[in-house]
Simulated scan of single mutants.
Amino acid sequence: MDTSMIKGLAIGAVSVVALSASGIVGYKTLVRPSYAEVLAVKDIKEKVRTPREECQDVPVQKRAAVEDRNRIAGTVIGGVLGGLVGSQIGRGGGNTVATIAGAAAGGYAGNSIQKDMQNKDVVSTVEHRCKTVFDVSEKIVGYDVSYRLDGKEDHVQLAYDPGNRIPVKDGKLVLEPPERAK
Results as ranks from 00 to 15, higher is better:
I6T: 05
A40S: 11
D116H: 08
V145E: 02
T3E: 13
V156G: 14
I166R: 05
E153G: 03
V48S: 06
S146V: 01
G93Q: 09
G171R: 10
A21T: 11
V25N: 05
P33S: 07
D154A: 12
A105G: 05
G82T: 02
P59N: 03
G151V: 02
V133Q: 03
I89R: 02
R71G: 06
V126C: 00
V48E: 12
N111R: 15
P178Q: 12
T96Y: 10
K47G: 04
V174G: 10
K182I: 13
G86R: 09
P177D: 09
V133N: 00
E67A: 09
G94A: 12
G23A: 11
V97C: 01
K115M: 01
N95T: 13
P33H: 03
K182T: 10
P162E: 04
K120H: 04
G12H: 14
K172Q: 14
L173T: 05
Q114S: 07
P167T: 14
T125Q: 11
A65V: 15
N70W: 14
D43N: 05
L19Q: 06
K62W: 04
T29R: 15
L81A: 12
R52V: 04
V156P: 15
G163P: 13
A64W: 10
A159L: 14
D144H: 11
F134H: 08
V85A: 15
D135C: 01
R71V: 02
D154R: 13
R180V: 08
V80L: 07
R165Y: 12
R63E: 10
R71Q: 11
Y35M: 12
V76S: 08
S112C: 00
S4R: 11
V85R: 07
L84N: 01
D144I: 01
N95G: 14
N164M: 02
L39I: 14
K115R: 11
D68T: 11
M117K: 08
K120E: 00
R52G: 07
K7T: 09
A64P: 15
V133K: 00
R148T: 06
R148C: 05
N70D: 15
V66I: 11
E53D: 00
I72A: 07
